[in-house]
């Protein structure tokens, strides 16, 4: 089973749009992140789910496709794999919660 991701409680992040980027203050760690598209959209997609609902990269991709055209620069690269990598990076930064299936 692939890893699944969920948004942190709203109280854990402060998000401010700065031009084309987004500054995010992670309250538990006190660390500031400056993130570019499409990361804020990924966070929005997870935050729109019911509390405690975890989504796999495939499920996130399905939701994003409803709103955006998804096309990679590299045709050999699967969008789902790219998304899985981005979500894993966000989890490593502590900006989303992750559930690893055994």
């Amino acid at each position: 089973m692939p890893s699944a991701y969920a948004a942190l409680p709203a109280s854990a992040l402060k998000r401010v749009t700065l031009g084309g980027l987004e500054a995010i203050y992670h309250l538990p760690s006190g660390i500031t992140h400056l993130l570019a598209e499409p990361v804020p959209d990924l966070l929005d997609t997870l935050a729109a789910q019911a509390p405690g609902r975890y989504l796999t990269a495939g499920e996130v991709l399905g939701l994003i496709r409803e709103r955006f055209d998804v096309a990679g620069d590299d045709p050999t690269e699967q969008p789902q794999n790219v998304l899985a990598e981005r979500l894993a990076e966000l989890a490593a930064l502590g900006l989303v919660a992750v559930m690893h299936h055994a």
């Binding site: 700065l18 031009g19 084309g20 980027l21 500054a23 400056l34």
Partner: peptide, 8 residues
């Protein structure tokens, strides 16, 4: 200078 660069 845009907002993000100013911030950094």
């Amino acid at each position: 200078v845009d907002e993000a660069e100013s911030f950094v």
